[in-house]
Design a protein around this nucleic acid. Structure first.
Lengths: 215, 215
DNA sequence: TTAATTTTAGGGGGAAACCCTGGTTTTTCT
DNA sequence: AGAAAAACCAGGGTTTCCCCCTAAAATTAA
């Protein structure tokens, strides 16, 4: 029997979920909570397998609840339920221990499937959520590509020097490693400063990391 | 008619794909390529809607091909095909312009569905790949939390100094900005060097960027 | 084969960073 | 309230960085 705790501040919504789960074999509604604090309290004294957790609770955010649950009761699986299909919400929630993320417009069958899937140890995300995440993952390309375009060409040797600078080696150490003179390394760094429009080595490192110049 | 270019260095695999696509209505195999360079060449002089791209090509990586295609022929959609269901591969590929990612063990029907989906402008990922990405997205919690844990506490003031160092300001400039003495700033940097186990400002910047200390 | 770029190298000088030690005041935690 | 941590300040000494300049050899592109 899967013990489910429903956590949402909208009574009507909780009622709806409960009525779905009540008639379902193998699933039992262990309790209902209307805020984050009571979720933490409830799991302390009750056996709960899955928390159906609204991401937007009045007192604390669902993310905070996830974090605390993951710390104190890692065996309790969190299935996040949210009205918002936004990348920041989704990834934040997942990054704090939720095993699944479904939207509030999810139908009865999908809700049951999600609960059973998460209970089995796997993860579940509704189709829309999956798309959102993929989109977010892909859109990071634009920013990185754009900045790569207007980035001056860095020669092979300069890149080597740049890498070693980022690894905290001094000019002398870099010279020894590359079997070249200290003055040569200084030339390279000087050229790098000009090319990357940096004022010092700290900037060199920041710019090269931000633009993935060391890959 | 969807013009498809198959790019893979394994002849047998290309043959297999081709035989599937040949009997399919609305899909035409525009050409076959066995390395990345010829893909770039081919799209220059042929109409291609979709490139079925093996991520592991002999001469250049599929990621490189994606990048170049996105730059020169953004209308050509890349559907990545790979033997490896690994997070780094998948996200790298998607971040460089691929519209989909399927595995080589994908069946005939799913392949066709993927092609048609990508052609329609949407994205397609096989179920396994989706799971991998989700796992990867979730597992960043562990690494980030872990690194934050064994990362010494950085005071509010130190963080301010650290930010300004990363923004390439000199000690004197930082002192002026924060209305404190030059020597104080040096103290803070010195403490930061010790705390973050860095040898110089370059390392300070690298470590703080790698561990998201400036957020 | 020129032309351009890259890589190499050097002198000299000033600024900044780094290291060490010491101290006071303020904030934070218990 | 007392202890601990953080923030503040400072001097002197050493190293490293950064900048200006020049310039030859090697590689690459036109």
């Amino acid at each position: 029997m899967i013990q489910v705790l429903i956590a949402d501040d909208h009574t009507m919504f909780v009622d709806g979920i409960e009525s779905i789960l009540l008639v379902e074999d193998g699933i039992h509604v262990a309790g209902r909570c209307y805020d984050g604090a009571s979720v933490i309290e409830f799991v302390k004294s009750n056996k709960v397998d899955i928390v159906l957790l609204d991401v937007n609770l009045p007192d604390m955010s669902g993310i905070e609840v996830c974090k605390q649950l993951a710390a104190s009761h890692p065996e309790v699986k969190v299935l996040a339920i949210s009205m918002y299909n936004e990348e920041s919400y989704v990834s934040e929630t997942l990054n704090h221990g939720a095993r699944g993320y479904i939207l509030k417009n999810t139908g009865r069958d999908e809700l049951l499937k999600a609960i059973r899937t998460v209970y089995s140890g796997a993860t579940y995300f509704s189709k829309d959520v999956t798309e959102t995440i993929m989109k977010g993952l892909m859109n990071r390309r634009k920013s990185s590509t754009k900045s790569t375009v207007d980035m001056p060409k860095i020669s092979r040797r300069e890149k080597e020097v740049l890498k070693l600078i980022a690894e905290e080696f001094t000019t002398q150490e870099i010279a020894d490693k590359l079997f070249i003179s200290l003055k040569t390394v200084e030339s390279h760094r000087s050229n790098l400063l000009a090319k990357l429009n940096a004022r010092n080595s700290a900037g060199l490192v920041r710019i090269s990391l931000e633009n993935h110049l060391l890959d």
